[in-house]
Nucleic acid binder design. Sequence first.
DNA 1: AATGAATGAGTGTTCATTCAT
DNA 2: GATGAATGAACACTCATTCAT
Lengths: 201, 201, 201, 201
Amino acid sequence: MVRETVLKAEKRQAGTELKDKIFKAAQRLFVEKGYHSTSIPDIVKEAGVSTGAIYHHYSSKEELAREIHKTAVQQFLANFNEQVRTQKSTYAKIRAYTSLMFRWTEQDPVMVQYLLYGRPKEILVRNLTVCSEEGLQATREMVEQGMEAGEIKTMNPCLASAIISGTLMRMIELRLDGLIEHPLEEFIEAAANNIWLALKA
Amino acid sequence: MVRETVLKAEKRQAGTELKDKIFKAAQRLFVEKGYHSTSIPDIVKEAGVSTGAIYHHYSSKEELAREIHKTAVQQFLANFNEQVRTQKSTYAKIRAYTSLMFRWTEQDPVMVQYLLYGRPKEILVRNLTVCSEEGLQATREMVEQGMEAGEIKTMNPCLASAIISGTLMRMIELRLDGLIEHPLEEFIEAAANNIWLALKA
Amino acid sequence: MVRETVLKAEKRQAGTELKDKIFKAAQRLFVEKGYHSTSIPDIVKEAGVSTGAIYHHYSSKEELAREIHKTAVQQFLANFNEQVRTQKSTYAKIRAYTSLMFRWTEQDPVMVQYLLYGRPKEILVRNLTVCSEEGLQATREMVEQGMEAGEIKTMNPCLASAIISGTLMRMIELRLDGLIEHPLEEFIEAAANNIWLALKA
Amino acid sequence: MVRETVLKAEKRQAGTELKDKIFKAAQRLFVEKGYHSTSIPDIVKEAGVSTGAIYHHYSSKEELAREIHKTAVQQFLANFNEQVRTQKSTYAKIRAYTSLMFRWTEQDPVMVQYLLYGRPKEILVRNLTVCSEEGLQATREMVEQGMEAGEIKTMNPCLASAIISGTLMRMIELRLDGLIEHPLEEFIEAAANNIWLALKA
DNA sequence: AATGAATGAGTGTTCATTCAT
DNA sequence: GATGAATGAACACTCATTCAT
């Protein structure tokens, strides 16, 4: 049975107390209202700091957004490496991936929402959700190894990845939007199993 | 075999020529640069009309965006009703849905991109992709009828919908981002079949 | 005797009434408080226009300053060409140049002040007063022709120019600063004569 | 023959090392970029000191600028008193003044530039170059004594002063702007002689 | 003496919207 | 219908200055 490991959280050290308040307030607001609709004055109010403090710690609004995104991606990758990559079988990996994402959504919806929507698309040029390049790469690696091992049937790896990450993302989206009323943990088993049916050799 | 029907296009009457120029310029820009990064002066330049003309035809920038969105949803629904709903079996419906979305993406990527990213999230409050409420509703109806008919196994309908729309959306996303280099038409068969494996009774 | 010609003034056509109000208010303030100490809100107040109006007519504060400078230089050159260049003898030219600058100072001190202090130095990189490159060029041409004609003794042309423009500028400066209390017109004769003593062959 | 005395330099006591670093960094930057375009952070970087240190030694940015200006004026006066005032004849004085200013320009262009351009105009309200009031006073004194002694012809003292300081300042300006390519020392003789021709009885 | 995090008023600029023509 | 000059609130960002350490 898959160990339900504790999720990796905040790596950023405390000490810089203000910096943290700014980070969290901005993250909350960016998710809630979007990057462009969140003004610096909004963050000032939400974080209870001065305008100058924000620019003391971050060189621009954009850098602040990038920093938040980077943190989200790093957390995702740390969790993925620890809980998913370490699994032996491909099925176990898919199960662990589903578990990771669903539990994370329940535990820190703001962070996951940032991963999904607060994506750099709005800010930068490229976009790619669920953890951008790195997230995509992680899923593909899983798929390709599964194919090599003969556990997943031969198919276009993009399609296989899309079935996995598309399904998970869509479930999370429906949950965050309140269209799924039960905690996602209840769906881990079913989601993983059905994805597996689509992929297994 | 599934008939590859022609896609429903522009329903909006030619009527006022200027209004059309504004609509199309705005749509292009909203997709390209995002709603917030597109200014009225941008649209003025792109469409080659005056500021006043925009406000003559649309009461605000937001209404313009909403209008574009509404059109996209209407086109989606028209196509869905004609090509998907009319299918007999659930498998045929899934196959037709996949075909519709993949072919549409190749044919009018701007419009599909608008459906996926230019979503009201940025503009309004609620979001819900692939055609918002209506799109979701369409997929769910398909799933629920399939379950009643015993073609789809008993499962949470949200999960079933997520597998379908999540996979399709993710494929489209990868294609629009240039990570899939072949036309999506090549994947219709495989995508539909694999989705079916996850759902069939 | 030297004809005391009328000074060339405002070439800029009316019509764009607001643009003119902005131009004049900015010119007044730039001279009075300097470019950097004059804020856009200052100009807004002084000109009685809106912020937007300024940016509708000038692309930036810097461009506004450049426009004012350009106008001053053009007026200078127009007057110089008409009143100084047309003189036959070098002495007559020096006399006319002195007359031009002293009368102009009395008539439009703001403009002359702008020529002297409001120079691009503060704004741009290069500086060179009394009409920048063009003004310098004009004086040098006068000097070199005088030397060729044997009217001015052989000497470094920069030195000769410096004697002319340095003396005139310094007189104007003292007048604008209130250290000379009589109108400069009273000094035309004496200034021109003494400069001439320093230069004549 | 006029003795080419050594120029009086830094009178300010070494005292606090940091204060000196701040002074010099600020002077360099004020000349290079102008007072307003030089920020405290700029000085912090250039001097390699902390913000606090600047405010420990100077009560404000303005006071720092004033201090630098005062030092320049003091150096000018010290040099003037020693090298110019001590001369017997008015011609010798003019010769010595020219020599002082031209050699100083070559030796410490930053300081001289500060005297010419970094003038308080930008900072305070009044301006008056070449050493402000004191500098003007020094030149006038020279002129008035020369007239009393019958060495300079009777003329308006302001005009006489303007011929001297205007010519010197303009030469320095042309040199600092790179329009005179030879060291100013080469022009001492000629400049003094020609100024003298304009003034002598 | 020295530091540098924190402040917040102020800057130049943008832009959705209005309205006289 | 159509124009584009005009508006002014709002924005991201800067920077002289303060003050706890």
